[in-house]
Design a protein around this nucleic acid. Structure first.
Lengths: 336, 336
DNA sequence: GAAGGTAACGAAATCGATTAAGATTTCCTG
DNA sequence: CAGGAAATCTTAATCGATTTCGTTACCTTC
């Protein structure tokens, strides 16, 4: 391994000089800097992040946490998109990504300990169950964090515009003549709760009455569960003309159930999803949905976390809302 | 931050003793060990991975590389499954995961430099374009690697059983009476090449003639591209009775094209995918496909890499083939 | 009781890089 | 040309943990 010591010997200067030259310190003669840079290149020198981290107390390493058991893992397109963008932005800023898991290693470290053990400069909490003590310990710790779709006192968070998104979907259905809209929502988390409230409020403000049976709860990100609720909706004496699903993936479960019953989309019933994952636009008919700004959420999360890390003094926690976009698709049909 | 120095002061022993006690060295009195362990717990001590890495020359950190532009990224279910399992196994063994990207940071490090900069003990190359010089540089370097679905002289690799998988699919179609089987394959990489050869060989051994027009090339993991080839197949004077797609995701493109032309699956035509991603079994009809052992591939990759790292002497490169499983699904119909 | 053995612990070097403080040389300027 | 500022470079401590090689004290054993 080539170290600054090798360079210093090759150039006949001290290690300090090499370090400073490589880092652009102001008190090294330009000619010397050039000579050192040249040698570094010639020897194939690479700085050692570990050594630097130890000395300066900064690892240039940020942790990411994806651990929501309800499908909020990296295998979901929405989250993998977020992850990709966190990674891209972080790397652009010179930070590496380390995955933070729980029960890490033989010592079974929890999230906080894991992040600390790896000297993460900060952590992006992309999906997690905030009722879990281990998650709370991390978010309440001294480690800088950015939370996605969850606000926490004194912390920075990136929020998807769930209220506005749901409102747009409802209005879109309304404009297409729908007055009997059912909503299968996920278990009540802070996210699904917001969508539910927005759904109710928007319906009310449009003068749409929503019977109790039209509001159903399924398991978030779980097609099978949504399938069951869909069946229940079809059995109602007065069927809805439009069904909102908790998310795009869940819609697939509903879709199967509808097909099995010979109910065509959107001829016989209209549907909408939520998320706007790529898959939803590959299938035909293209799903009407609300595309969350996953790319921007990821990018912003990384950007704000790094900002917080690098300028801790002039830092104030903030809540950033990322706007998504209504994807009209073809599954909400004009009626009435 | 609590360090061994704090513990040593609290216990009135030297730092060396603390280190040894915590690491189970044989020359510390049991009573002392107990006392030190107790204090460590009381003070909330956490070892500093960075410092340890610097001293012992091992970071307990492995890199993962997902960078195939042809859809081999983390957003694909097949690859995210692999990743999840690499991560789980690695963490169980006490290793962290760092994502290796190219053009890293302000210095624009390539893969090798990036891995070296982070002192990765090894790298799992999960998806990459091996014709890329940056990838070759890494795989030819002194850094231990495990390669997925690609063999490289002197390197360990985990291979999916592409030959056997494709053979099983062809035989399954044959047993269901199909004699006119078309195959849309991906661009020729080492993986798709194996499947193509196996397809041809199996067909030949079963006495199935495969006209030139039945073999078509599409872009791997790209639904749109497969849709176009599907259209071409439908236009043939003698349509195939069964179409094999490059992969499950690509099938979706074909599916749309078939539906648009009023061709029903599997009543009018049979189809098969490849990969066995969860999505393929959510949709109805369930896709006939070959499920690659993604979980096992990930687990094995991590396990073998760590083995290689920890016992470099008694190490010999090996090729492990992970068997998958035929998923019969409902899209190949009995005919004839 | 002298020689040697062993158990338990400590001193100090080390990993690679950074950085405050100091040393040396160069260069002005009045 | 003396005095001091400016430019340039070095010394040495430091980050936290590991590890080699002692050292000390206490036993054995003949």
């Amino acid at each position: 391994m080539v170290t600054i010591t090798d360079i210093s010997r090759a150039c006949g200067v001290s290690r300090a000089t090499v370090s400073k030259a490589l880092n652009g310190a102001p008190d090294i003669a330009p000619a010397t800097v050039e000579r050192i840079r040249e040698q570094a290149r010639a020897l194939g020198y690479l700085p050692n992040a570990t050594a630097r981290a130890l000395k300066v107390g900064r690892s240039y390493n940020i942790g990411v946490l994806f651990s929501d058991p309800t499908g909020g893992g990296i295998s979901h397109e929405f989250f993998s998109t977020i992850f990709e963008n966190i990674k891209t932005e972080a790397e652009r800023l010179g930070y590496d990504i380390t995955f933070i898991g729980k029960d890490f290693g033989p010592l079974s470290l929890d999230f906080y300990e894991h992040a600390k053990y790896r000297s993460c400069d900060g952590v992006v909490i992309a999906s997690a169950d905030f009722s879990e003590p281990a998650v709370r310990r991390l978010v309440e710790s001294e480690i800088p964090t950015v939370t996605l779709d969850y606000t926490f006192e004194g912390r920075t968070s990136i929020l998807s515009d769930n209220v506005s998104g749901m409102e747009q979907l409802v209005r879109f259905a309304y404009e297409n003549g729908h007055r009997r809209i059912a909503f299968i929502h996920g278990e009540l988390t802070s996210v699904t709760q917001k969508r539910l409230v927005s759904f109710r409020r928007t319906c009310a403000s449009l003068g749409i009455a929503v019977p109790q049976e039209y509001i159903r709860q399924a398991v978030y990100h779980n097609p099978k569960s949504s399938g069951l609720e869909t069946r229940a909706l079809l059995a109602l004496p007065e069927r809805p003309t439009c069904i909102f699903f908790p998310d795009d993936l869940s819609f697939l479960g509903g879709m199967n159930e509808l097909e099995r019953n010979g109910v065509r989309i959107p001829d016989d019933i209209s549907v909408a999803g939520y998320d706007g994952i790529p898959l939803s636009q590959i299938l035909r008919p293209r799903l009407t949905t609300y595309r969350q700004g996953a790319q921007e959420m990821g990018t912003e999360a990384a950007r704000l976390l790094v900002e917080q890390i690098e300028y801790p003094d002039m830092w104030l926690p903030q809540q950033v809302t990322v706007r998504g976009e209504l994807v009209k698709g073809d599954t909400i049909r004009r009626i009435g």
